[in-house]
């Protein structure tokens, strides 16, 4: 059930600029709707699809990487239709699934060389050395993967994915199961790739990571996008930052753009601001100039968790364990 020919042509004409375009992308597993009418445009950014387990993140990635056919709707990656030009799609992307699949009986270099050969990379030997160096694995390149830590294995997978210089990189839960330091390192590498102009599509269920490292976030719940925008935008849309100032003596509420006086209780004066971190020093200066003695200032920023709760609502545990649904999901995720 694809779009009609005319639709597809218009689509190609308008949208070749964006790295990823989806239009009403929908996937049913029998009666279970995994992805519901997804329309997205993603280009030259780190885009995170954020959602709980089973919300349709992986299914979306599988469709965009041509491993799964959509039930309805269409998508293009680098201007190539995922159904009609699957092979072209595959030659401009790399996909790192969440399973961490590297051959433990081979060395790091052999693992990367294997992918370089599969991609038919020219000057494979130099290119392999290069990506190993980028991922800081040169020292250990000739050790068997058996001896690698989880973080190193993940970096090796990134090296494999980068060996043919893809325009779009799909990462499914790139930091799952890694310790804090390894996570940070992976994200630093991802950020560097983005600086070089790569489009990176990640799925994650770690709100803090998405908040910290991604340019734009789509919160997905039950296969539908519930909120879409940059993390700061989403948080700003949800609620303003709250600033509380503890003051000694009198205080006349100052007029600063973007800062709203809320009220005073005892010696605590409260404001809300569009952007709290920026408003904080301005507010401190203005208050000080007006003669108030500031003892302390507090800023509480809303987090993506707040956004998520607002957008999706409290995640209720299903009453009965839906065995059949669960098995369908499991089977499809293999």
């Amino acid at each position: 059930m694809r779009n009609t020919g005319t639709d597809a042509r218009e689509w190609d004409g308008e949208m070749t600029m964006n790295a990823i375009e989806t239009s009403n992308l929908t996937k049913y597993y029998d009666a279970l709707c995994a992805v519901d009418d997804l329309t997205l445009s993603i280009n030259n950014e780190i885009f995170a699809l954020l959602g709980p387990n089973g919300s349709g993140k992986t299914t979306t990635v599988l469709m965009l990487t041509t491993l799964l056919h959509p039930t309805k709707g269409s998508a293009t990656v680098c201007g190539n239709d995922i159904l009609r030009n699957a092979e072209e799609v595959r030659s401009c992307i790399s996909y790192v699934p969440q399973d961490m699949a590297v051959d433990i009986k081979l060395t790091g270099r052999e693992n990367v060389r294997f992918f370089a050969d599969l991609y038919g990379v020219e000057n494979a030997k130099d290119r392999v050395d290069e990506v190993l160096a980028v991922m800081e694995l040169t020292d250990r390149a000739d050790d068997l993967i058996k001896t690698y830590s989880g973080g190193m294995r993940r970096r090796l997978e990134l090296a494999q994915a980068l060996v043919h210089e893809p325009s779009v990189l799909f990462l499914d839960e790139p930091t799952i199961g890694l310790d804090v330091a390894a996570r940070k390192k992976i994200w630093e590498h991802i950020r560097n790739l983005r600086k070089k102009g790569m489009t990176i599509f990640v799925t994650t269920h770690y709100m803090d990571e998405a908040d910290q490292f991604c340019d734009r976030v789509g919160i997905i719940s039950k296969g539908r996008i519930a909120a879409l925008g940059s993390p700061s935008e989403l948080k700003a849309r949800l609620m303003k930052d709250v600033i509380t100032v503890r003051i000694e003596g009198e205080c006349t509420p100052p007029h600063i753009e973007g800062v709203i006086f809320v009220g005073r209780t005892g010696d605590e004066v409260s404001f809300t601001a569009e952007n709290g971190s920026e408003a904080l020093p301005v507010l401190a200066d203005t208050l000080a100039r007006s003669g108030a003695a500031i003892r302390a200032m507090f800023l509480r920023e809303p987090t993506l968790d707040d956004v998520f709760l607002q957008a999706v609502g409290q995640q209720e545990e299903p009453h009965g364990f839906e065995d059949a649904k669960f098995r369908i999901m499991l089977r499809r995720r293999k």
Partner: peptide, 14 residues
């Protein structure tokens, strides 16, 4: 297939 290699291979232009 179980270990996730196949998914990687299927996403290759090979």
């Amino acid at each position: 297939k179980i270990l996730g290699f196949l998914n990687k291979f299927l996403a290759l232009p090979t």
